Simulated scan of single mutants.
Amino acid sequence: MSGVFIGCAGWSIGRDHWPRFAEQGTHLQRYAGQFSAVEINSSFYRPHRPQTYKRWAESVGADFRFSVKLPRSITHGRRLKDCEGLLDDFFSQCSNLGDRLGCVLVQLPPSLVYDAPVAQAFLQAVRARYKGALALEPRHDSWAAAQACMQRLHIARVAADPAVLSAGFEPGGWAGLQYWRLHGSPRIYHSEYGVARLQALARHARARSASEYWFIFDNTASGHAISDALTFQTEFSSLLNPSSNSVP
């Protein structure tokens, strides 16, 4: 599915799911045999060596993509101000993924209110360093005012479940990219989505045309992310290729 990236937050494979993956290889290699993408959240908490990113890139196929989360030292520590050096450090590290770097995710703290000069300078600084897919996850309603800036810079607003914005569980910003983060609801990180909800999500996302889609399942605490992601992969593929389901 070109332009469609489906996977989980991290590549851990619970023992219950082992039969659905290859027996040989590292966890990442086995995971990448079934999925097209993964979201790296550990980069939010600590830097990774360039060699580590390079090793990860070499472990996956040519069509596999990583989404990498911007460090909290930038978003939560500096709160987007005076962070040019930290941005340089981050991109010098994750750029070692090469063309396997598919998206950069910027998650903001809930307390961060939109300040137009600060926000626009920051987003322009990020965009100057990275030309690929860029997704912003604001968690304060004041960021609705950033819509025009995000459209101009081709930055998508994340659709997160459970929703924290009054706009609800909807993508925003630049319409060319949709980035969905599925944490599980009603019990965050635990609840299973199940077939009916995943079918509804697939139809809803497909109704809003985009050139690139990301669906990341983070309901990992009770082990449902893998099965939900595999199910959703099948459901979304059937919408993109309806003829493949027809009986000759």
Rank of each mutant, 00 (worst) to 15 (best):
2 S>R: 12
2 S>N: 11
5 F>Q: 01
6 I>T: 01
6 I>V: 14
8 C>S: 06
8 C>Q: 02
9 A>F: 02
10 G>H: 00
13 I>G: 10
18 W>H: 15
19 P>W: 11
19 P>S: 08
23 E>N: 06
29 Q>E: 15
29 Q>V: 03
30 R>V: 08
31 Y>F: 13
32 A>L: 04
38 V>M: 03
39 E>P: 07
41 N>S: 09
41 N>E: 14
44 F>Q: 06
44 F>K: 02
45 Y>P: 05
45 Y>G: 03
48 H>V: 02
49 R>A: 14
51 Q>H: 10
54 K>S: 12
56 W>S: 00
56 W>E: 02
57 A>I: 00
58 E>P: 00
59 S>R: 08
60 V>E: 11
63 D>C: 05
66 F>H: 09
67 S>D: 06
67 S>P: 04
68 V>S: 11
72 R>S: 13
72 R>K: 15
74 I>F: 05
75 T>W: 05
76 H>D: 08
79 R>D: 03
79 R>P: 04
80 L>N: 04
81 K>F: 07
82 D>V: 00
94 C>R: 03
95 S>N: 15
95 S>K: 15
95 S>F: 01
96 N>F: 14
98 G>R: 02
98 G>T: 02
98 G>L: 01
99 D>R: 11
99 D>E: 15
105 L>F: 15
109 P>Y: 04
109 P>N: 05
110 P>V: 09
110 P>T: 09
111 S>E: 13
111 S>T: 13
113 V>L: 13
119 A>S: 12
121 A>W: 01
123 L>W: 10
126 V>L: 10
127 R>I: 04
127 R>T: 04
128 A>M: 06
128 A>V: 05
130 Y>F: 15
131 K>S: 15
133 A>Y: 04
134 L>M: 10
138 P>M: 06
139 R>P: 11
140 H>L: 11
142 S>E: 14
143 W>D: 12
143 W>H: 12
144 A>S: 15
147 Q>H: 14
148 A>L: 10
150 M>R: 11
151 Q>T: 09
152 R>Y: 05
152 R>C: 08
153 L>K: 05
153 L>M: 10
154 H>G: 01
158 V>H: 06
161 D>F: 07
162 P>C: 11
163 A>T: 07
163 A>C: 04
164 V>A: 09
168 G>Y: 01
168 G>N: 05
169 F>T: 08
169 F>Y: 13
171 P>G: 00
172 G>M: 02
172 G>F: 01
172 G>S: 05
175 A>K: 04
175 A>R: 06
176 G>P: 00
176 G>M: 00
177 L>A: 01
179 Y>F: 14
183 H>S: 10
183 H>K: 11
184 G>K: 02
185 S>Q: 15
186 P>L: 12
187 R>C: 09
188 I>P: 06
190 H>T: 08
190 H>I: 10
192 E>Y: 09
195 V>Y: 13
195 V>K: 13
196 A>Y: 04
198 L>Q: 09
200 A>I: 09
202 A>D: 06
202 A>E: 03
203 R>Q: 14
203 R>P: 06
205 A>I: 02
208 R>F: 00
210 A>C: 12
210 A>H: 01
213 Y>H: 02
216 I>L: 13
219 N>R: 03
222 S>K: 12
224 H>N: 12
226 I>P: 07
228 D>A: 13
229 A>Y: 10
232 F>E: 08
233 Q>S: 14
234 T>W: 07
235 E>L: 15
237 S>W: 05
240 L>D: 00
246 S>C: 10
248 P>Y: 08
248 P>C: 08
